[in-house]
């Protein structure tokens, strides 16, 4: 009885609660929307502020002002035509590589008390081809060479030496050197001969240097080198050292000169 009496109240309460719920949802939506609009307004205000600041910075840093500062203080000017480069390559050409001092060099120098008399012939044999009439003059020069390249030393310095006599007559030199190397290597392998014999060998090689021989040594040298170095290490004589060093000297240019050499001796 009582429950039925309250049914209508229940209905009213239910309807009211539902309506309230709906209203709350709507209110929620409205408030969210309002806060969203607030954010939008903030964005617009921020945009306006940014504009104002940009305008201020732009006005303070106007080009005329910068120009004035440049004229009065900085004195910068437009780049000249010759300050433009074509690329990395041109840039690289403008930088001369620094001369690297090889830390190993002094040590080697100390271990090479070049016995000059025996050393000279070797060198002169090399130099002979370039200008055969300067045995006396080569003295100091040869000393210098000795100082600058040593047996353990890497190729670069020796390469410089080769580069110097590049002109035509010098091209024969590598050929002979190659020939030398070959003969010497052979020599050394068999037995360490006295220096005089070696020089004789060299000379014979110079004189006999056939047109064919250079091609082979060029190929061989690569193989030879390590062996030669070893023998050199074994040999305490400076003469032994020189041929070895002269070989690497030839080596870098080996592939190309091979052809030119063939041409030249024939002449």
């Amino acid at each position: 009885m009582s429950a039925r009496g309250f049914a209508s109240v229940g209905w009213v309460a239910g309807v009211a609660a539902t309506a309230l719920g709906c209203y709350m949802v709507s209110l929620q939506v409205a408030s969210t929307r309002a806060s969203l609009e607030d954010v939008e307004t903030q964005i617009v205000v921020a945009q306006r502020d940014i504009r104002v600041l940009q305008t201020e910075i732009g006005t303070r840093g106007r080009l005329a002002q910068l120009e004035q500062w440049n004229v009065k203080v900085l004195a910068l000017s437009a780049p000249q035509a010759n300050q433009f480069l074509d690329g990395e390559f041109q840039l690289a050409t403008m930088v001369t590589p620094k001369k690297t001092v090889d830390p190993a060099a002094p040590v080697v120098l100390a271990s090479a008390p070049a016995p000059s008399p025996s050393a000279r012939p070797l060198l002169s044999s090399d130099a002979d081809v370039a200008n055969p009439a300067e045995p006396a003059g080569t003295d100091a020069k040869s000393m210098m060479h000795i100082a600058s390249f040593k047996r353990d030393l890497p190729a670069p310095e020796q390469r410089q030496m080769v580069v110097k006599p590049v002109p035509a007559p010098a091209k024969a030199a590598p050929a002979k050197a190659a020939a030398d190397a070959k003969s010497k290597a052979a020599d050394k392998k068999t037995a360490a001969r006295p220096p005089a014999a070696k020089t004789a060998d060299n000379k014979s090689a110079v004189s006999s240097a056939p047109s064919k021989s250079p091609a082979k040594p060029a190929a061989k040298k690569v193989v030879d080198k390590p062996i030669v170095v070893k023998t050199a290490a074994a040999d305490t004589s400076a003469k032994a050292a020189k041929p070895k060093t002269s070989q690497p000297k030839v080596d870098p240019l080996a592939p190309k000169p091979a052809k030119s050499r063939e041409a030249k001796p024939k002449q």
Binding site: S26, R33, A34, E40, Q47, R48, R51
Partner: peptide
């Protein structure tokens, strides 16, 4: 209005800044 209308503080045409 409660269900679908805009609330009183609604601003219009302020979504982007037009000088």
């Amino acid at each position: 209005l409660a269900a679908f209308g805009d609330h009183a503080g609604r601003k219009q045409s302020l979504t982007s800044f037009v000088p």
